[in-house]
Simulated scan of single mutants.
Amino acid sequence: MPKKRPVTTALAAALCLLTAACGGSSDDENTSTKTTADSKTGYPVTLENCGRSETFTKDPSRVVVMNGASVAEVSTLLALGLRDRIVANQQTYGMSEVAGRAAAIKALPTGDIKVNEAYDVPREAMLGLRPDLVLSITTYGFEQKNGFATREQLKQVGANSYVSPQGCDDDPSKMTVADSYALLRDMGKIFNVRDKAEKLIAESEKNIAAVSEKVRGKKKPKVMVLFSNMAMGGNDFSSVFSKGIVNDILAKAGGSNAFERAAENTFADLSKEKVAATDVDALVVIGYNDPHPAAYAKKLLKEFPQWSAAKNNTYVTLSDSMYLGPSNDLAVEKIAKMLHPEAF
Rank of each mutant, 00 (worst) to 15 (best):
A159H: 08
P172I: 04
N235R: 11
T176L: 07
F241E: 05
A182P: 12
K189R: 15
G188H: 01
K206A: 15
E264W: 07
E213D: 13
V193H: 02
K252G: 03
E198Y: 03
A202C: 09
D186W: 03
F237E: 06
L184E: 08
M230N: 09
G217E: 10
V240L: 11
V215W: 02
M175N: 09
V215P: 08
S173W: 00
D179M: 09
A182H: 14
P221Q: 00
V211Y: 00
D236I: 02
K199N: 14
S256D: 15
K214D: 13
I208A: 01
N207R: 15
F259D: 01
E198G: 01
G254F: 00
R194D: 13
F267C: 10
A209V: 09
K272M: 10
F237D: 02
N207Q: 13
D186M: 11
A276I: 10
G255K: 00
I201N: 07
S161N: 11
I249P: 00
E260K: 07
A197G: 08
Q166N: 14
A197R: 03
L270T: 06
A182L: 11
S161H: 11
K218S: 12
A182C: 12
V246N: 08
G217Q: 11
S271K: 08
M232R: 02
Y181M: 08
Q166P: 03
V223S: 04
K189W: 06
A159R: 07
V215E: 07
V211R: 00
K189Q: 12
G255A: 03
N247K: 01
P172T: 06
P172D: 09
K206E: 13
A253N: 10
M224T: 07
P221V: 02
K220F: 03
D186I: 07
S164C: 13
I208C: 04
A263T: 07
R261E: 14
G158V: 12
L226E: 14
V246E: 08
S173Q: 04
E198M: 05
Q166K: 13
S164D: 10
V215Y: 04
E213R: 15
A202D: 12
T176H: 03
D169Q: 12
G254N: 00
K206I: 12
G188D: 03
D179I: 01
N257C: 02
